[in-house]
Simulated assay, not measured.
Amino acid sequence: MISRPMTRRRMIGISAAAAGMALLPFGSTAATPEAVTWQGEAMGAQASLVIHHTDRAKAQKLVEATVAEVRRLERIFSLYRDDSDLTLLNRQRFLVSPPKELVEILRQSSDAWALTGGAFDPTVQPLWDAYRRHFSTPGASEAGPSAGIVRECLTRVGLYRIACSAARIELPTADSALTLNGIAQGYVTDKVVDLLRASGIEHSMVDMGESRAIGPAWDDRPWRVGVSDPLDTARILKVLEVEDRAVATSSPFGFRFDAEGRFSHIIDPRSGATPRRHASVTVVAGQAALADALSTAFNLMDVGEIVAVLEGMAGVEAHILSHDGNWTSA
């Protein structure tokens, strides 16, 4: 029997098995001597982790190592923490001797920025802040921030303006700011996959906000990842079969600044607008960070532009849900 679909959700989860060990379906409450479970929070979301192993003590150590790795990466990337390296960079505009992971994720971001013609850009944070401030002000105009405010924010946006090296990261102006919310969950997923593989895990589905499969499922069939309706996350619209691949979904319905939903968290860093071209975009790729970044950017691009990007990328595919419920795969 093929493993049952995992839905896209705010819950972060890992269900992992050592080579030769069968996986329980994610969310099962069945108890086995080989299962070690942890629950808590990670990357601003509820999290759970289940490790199955022939040696329970080793499973416990693997759980502890995985949680420790997630916590370490949170201290670098999280905007939810006042003491993270990213928060410090945004606060003081520069960072000396930055963590190598921060340099690496910015380089990956730069690659995604170039691939998408600037549609993916972590320097979009000033625009996000402008929308948040506007719609949290009593009596704010339903039309959103003024054109003047948007234009001013755009002067602080542009990944190409950041100086980034192993020795120093510097933002272009004192009011510039970065958000890694469009790539960090994928990056953390990739790092957890590296840790699990190094520990002998050969069958796993890792979800740190984005999903990535290690090998096939326990029965040697592909993992099945369910893509949910962005307006009803309990309803699965499409099931993708993956093996050693990552899956990421982004949608303008994920977070909306206004009650009517005209202004979403997916902001175009080139114009400052929040267009709703698609209901959702799901990307399948070898790396979760790449899938994460592309799924965000593709929400700001038309189908033809998406196809043009993917033509030069082997092993990457996109599944685009239109507002009238139709799918286009590229």
Score class of each variant (00 low, 15 high):
129 D>N: 15
68 A>P: 03
168 R>P: 06
54 T>V: 10
57 A>T: 04
236 I>Q: 04
169 I>H: 02
233 T>N: 08
112 A>Y: 14
112 A>P: 13
329 S>E: 09
188 V>M: 07
8 R>Y: 00
6 M>S: 05
157 V>E: 08
262 R>P: 03
41 E>Q: 07
267 I>H: 04
14 I>S: 01
132 R>H: 15
268 D>M: 12
201 I>R: 03
111 D>H: 14
197 R>D: 03
52 H>V: 01
291 A>P: 13
109 S>I: 14
262 R>F: 07
249 T>V: 15
4 R>L: 06
47 A>T: 01
249 T>K: 13
144 G>E: 09
194 D>K: 15
257 F>C: 12
267 I>R: 03
275 P>Q: 08
306 I>Q: 08
236 I>L: 06
218 W>I: 00
168 R>G: 05
313 M>P: 02
66 T>K: 10
280 S>H: 10
280 S>Y: 09
45 A>V: 01
43 M>T: 01
6 M>K: 01
256 R>H: 13
268 D>T: 11
50 V>Y: 02
151 R>I: 06
95 L>E: 05
56 R>G: 11
147 A>L: 10
212 R>A: 09
42 A>V: 00
41 E>A: 07
128 W>G: 14
181 N>T: 12
69 E>P: 02
105 I>Y: 14
157 V>H: 08
236 I>S: 02
221 R>D: 04
